[in-house]
Design a protein around this nucleic acid. Structure first.
Lengths: 239, 239, 239, 239
DNA sequence: GATGAATGAGGCTTCATTCAT
DNA sequence: GATGAATGAAGCCTCATTCAT
């Protein structure tokens, strides 16, 4: 799945300039970070002239916002599909709990399958106060609404603990997923870019950059934590 | 608790320039974001000349790193104290579970008491891949080690679920705390700065920027989720 | 009188692209100024593609020069006709003085009838030292020669003061006409373009932008000044 | 009189950066025209770094506006002085007619003494629609008011023809002065800059660029035209 | 002839950092 | 130590012009 999703017969030629630019932007943003990314580098990576970028996007900011919206929409689409169709292919509508499980698994699978997108969503998005503070993202609101709706439904059925407000629970779950995604994404790169900045700290304290782990499998851990929690101390209750 | 906290004999005179600069940097970073923050604005806010900053810090980057390390160290100190002393003042060593509860509550209380610091820790830290990717933060490693150690201890005692690796669980919990802190910090500002940039999106989708909530109380929710999870469907509990 | 005036068999179809482009250029130059005018805006205004302009003109510069030459030639034609035919339709050759009067009146009437052309001639022409300094304009030379010739003829006949060199007097009269035209052209626009630039000064000092006046009537004032001057103090001399 | 007027002991060193920049801007604007002038060339000519210019001026536009205002103010000061003190040093207040004469002579002498300033005032000012259309210049309004006031005073005394509105007469006189200044300024340069632009027309039609003339002496011609006009045909005066 | 998407050189401006005082 | 005026590298973006269709 490249950034331009749709059926792409491999021919990256033609009028797909916009998609090429988005793809290049995603790579360069992931490589350098939004602020350190140079428009000229994106252009070169996309194989177009600098000015061409401005035929498709209003500004560098617009490029990031567009990228984010496209990606977040894809995420939402995938998640919506995941919670709509029960894994077993059963036709019965899935229960909120099963939907929640599917949601978590689908999200982390997406991170695994689209690491570049994951970088944009977990890192770049936070790069600019413009996006953090000024830019209200409808796609992200959708994401939270979907997750919160699942939880609220479960609470109404009495299947999920209702003491935690659904939208807060949604935030917490998103935080878990996001942090796992971030840790996994950062663990990936061995930083081949010989850090030019003298500010770069060379001593890599072990422990911060976690050993690479299986993010897809981590979904089970998230489900476990979210569903049953960590506490096993009350087992003595049972006679 | 100002940025220069301890070991500051009250003399806010003389060599406190370093502390004044750090305080100003924290405010300006929180106000503008790291990249949009201007060194000259920090200098003015601190009441020193631009050049003076370079007598105490190697660069703007160094300023952020120093700020982060000081704050994170304070956080770690507070958390260490919180898990060391049982809330009741009892001398007995607290159980891992109680320590975990204390840890979570102390963290969110800190966010509440020091919002400027919270901004630096939750937002600025992620603003630059320079810091995300190149800078290995020993204080953050300590934070994770402390949290992970608590969980590992609980797992060894059989009080906490051992199927989730301790360091992964620590990440998940940190993600929850961090996301709540972020939501709370961002909910705060009513954005009085009349967004001049045309890129600013005017339609403020309700729901993205959450209504202000009680972050201290939210600690109970985090504890609830972490300890017992959300699932209440196993009604076999009842006899 | 549109820009393509004569020799245009009415067929506004087909090869009139050149004329359409010139007309659009005149409007856009008048609206924006030469430097701020965009070739693409001219193209859109003319209803042709950007590239089409380059089928008819070498460059944007060439467009301005062509426009100026065409307009200036028209002006010269009108002026030549005006000084050739005595106003009363008499066949007798007009005297230089009457020709001078006719010249002045015809010029200002032209400004009144073709304000877009007047803008090009009074404003755009001076917008670029490229045109002021590098481009020697034969049409303008003709204009000055015509006016200077009139004056010289009058001087030879003893009807006009000969102390002022004819070509200098021509310059002075052109200056008067040009300045009046400029003042009149600028007085016209109520500046509907909500000045976005912060450089725009808001305080509109009354007096600079003159109230709109009757430029055709102003011809009489020019004639009066040129012919008899302002001085009325020596009238008491005569017994 | 350099751009920074005041007592300048020749030492172009010290804190006079602002003045050096203004002087350089005047030269470069005169040499290239406002639009073709490069900020970097101004900086080099002033012997400062590019960025230094922005310590003293908000933008390139601001530089031109500042330059114009300073120069125009100097012009107004000189003219005010000229019409205040009768040439003979007599203490009696000069008559409007004499003031008008003094005004005209002082203006053209100024053009002669400060050709760079004259270029800015006659050419650059008109380079941008920003200045022509958006920017209302209070100094130029003062100039016109001064000249118009002189004429109105003469008209009230009955010494000057009252059929021409004073402010229109002022415009006409300014037009004459401005056109003469322009012709003189343009006549000066032998265009040593081997025109690089292919658009440059090489054939220099003689006649357009007038032979250099004595602009100070030309003041007498302007006075003659303004006072008595050109018409000498009414010989009925004599007998 | 006509099109208009693409080009790419180059300008204005910002701002972290330096260094003479 | 402290200052803050000066520096100058470098980026985003514009827009006249070209050329494959």
């Amino acid at each position: 799945m490249t950034v331009h999703s749709a059926a792409d017969g491999g021919s990256d030629r033609g009028g797909d300039k916009r998609a090429r630019i988005l793809g290049a932007a995603e790579r360069v943003f992931a490589r350098r970070g939004f602020f350190a990314a140079r428009v000229s580098e994106i252009a070169k990576d996309a194989g177009v002239a600098d000015g061409t970028i401005y035929l498709y996007f209003k500004s560098k900011d617009d490029l990031l916002i567009s990228l984010f919206e496209i990606r977040m929409k894809q995420v939402n689409d995938v998640l919506r599909a995941a919670i709509a169709s029960p894994p077993g292919g059963a036709t019965a509508t899935a229960s909120p709990i099963n939907q929640l499980r599917a949601f978590i698994k689908a999200y982390l699978k997406l991170v695994h399958d689209e690491p570049a997108a994951a970088e944009v969503l977990t890192i770049e998005l936070r790069q600019s106060s413009k996006f953090m503070k000024e830019y209200e993202n409808p796609q992200f609101a959708d994401f939270l609404r979907m997750l919160g709706g699942l939880i609220a439904a479960g609470q109404e059925r009495g299947e999920l603990d209702a003491t935690i407000p659904a939208h807060v629970a949604a935030r917490m779950i998103f935080g878990m997923l996001d942090e796992l995604a971030l840790a996994w994404v950062l663990a990936k790169q061995p930083l081949p870019t010989a850090a030019t900045s003298e500010a770069a700290i060379s001593a890599k304290a072990p422990g911060t950059r976690p050993k690479k782990f299986d993010i897809v499998r981590a979904a089970d851990w998230v489900v476990a934590l979210v569903m049953t929690g960590l506490d096993r101390s009350k087992k003595e209750k049972s006679p």
